[in-house]
Nucleic acid binder design. Sequence first.
DNA 1: GCGCAATCTTGCGCAGTGTGCAATCTCGCG
DNA 2: CGCGAGATTGCACACTGCGCAAGATTGCGC
Lengths: 212, 212
Amino acid sequence: MTALTEYTRTSAGRRERKKATTRAILAEKAIELCLQRGYSSVTVSDIADAAGVSRRTFSNYFANKAECLASAAQSNSDVIIAESSGFTAYSEASSITAVQRMLRGAPERFWIVCTELAELMQDEPELEAYLRAGDLANVERAIEPIAIELGVSPENLTLRVAIGAIANCIHTCILHWVKHNRDGEIADLLTLITDHVALIDLSWLDQLRSRT
Amino acid sequence: MTALTEYTRTSAGRRERKKATTRAILAEKAIELCLQRGYSSVTVSDIADAAGVSRRTFSNYFANKAECLASAAQSNSDVIIAESSGFTAYSEASSITAVQRMLRGAPERFWIVCTELAELMQDEPELEAYLRAGDLANVERAIEPIAIELGVSPENLTLRVAIGAIANCIHTCILHWVKHNRDGEIADLLTLITDHVALIDLSWLDQLRSRT
DNA sequence: GCGCAATCTTGCGCAGTGTGCAATCTCGCG
DNA sequence: CGCGAGATTGCACACTGCGCAAGATTGCGC
């Protein structure tokens, strides 16, 4: 119930925290209702009601339903992105190893939410679009710390292509999984992802690193 | 003016053709108006009016404004995807070479439309979402012929990851270009893309091929 | 505790949207 | 020519996104 809410433990002012909480609750209720009744038969008012706020307030937090769910995806990804700042901590290993370590470090809950969202997006083009865009936003947020660690600009195109390829790979694997192997163990999904991430050549990323 | 319309020269029944034309005109007018006034200040009625049909008819063709623009992107990509069926024609070369050849084979007009759309999507998250999703649809359409040529299933995950990485790379490069080098020559954009595509390791794709 | 200012929430109104439905129009085909 | 499939349209209605202003809540200095 408060699974996503957990991720929003900031020690800011009470006001900030309350906002973050409402936001998280809205996103959470949105997932809950959509999984339950199907995306298109859930209205913004429904979500707002479930979260105990007005429709207007919903709009203060999210531009629309899809963005709300995308935000859930984003909170969910925070846990991974946070870890990515330890990217070069394993400087002896290759980038690919670091990525795999990151993926394996994510809690099971993370992958569950991923598959839930993937399930939802399957027959809702609008949602798929927004979740993809959310992915992009995640890439954007992940790039900054990594770029710093590697000592290159966040605008570095090579870096962006690399991170984008990884994110895309993960996304593709999850979709594939939901489509073909929905009932398998999460551990197998993880294997699927790490195996395929390994296919991506990150040697040029390692080169970026060695130049520092 | 009729640039996109050109792409829809099918020799089907007149009825089919007329539908395809209306569709193309709608998409075209949509781009035109959006480039001119900005995405958010163009209404569906505006587009419909410009195309000479009713608002209701617009909805018969597209679910919404964003999807309409995404369709323009799709028509635009048809020219590339059509070429991808000659993928293994150069069996002596590596996959990466084939991809580069494909990219260089696209007419300048293709890249112009790409950059126009990229420009539009820059500050419109909704549009960005839909165009990204359109990319996915393109990947979906491109995979089929390639899979056949390689003799693997279109569901083959390795293949999907590879094609996805390429599409993502192209997209990322175009966005980067629009953001940092808007006024440069299209030829330079092409160089940027082929250079970065080359960074993606497609050797495992070549292996898929050699197994046939 | 008190009061003020900043901030959040809410209801209202309105233009725009997505879609089912039924009437009408168009066009291909016999 | 006339029929029938299919395309277009207007209408209605629920939902949406958002500006606005009133009201509630919160943080802070005293």
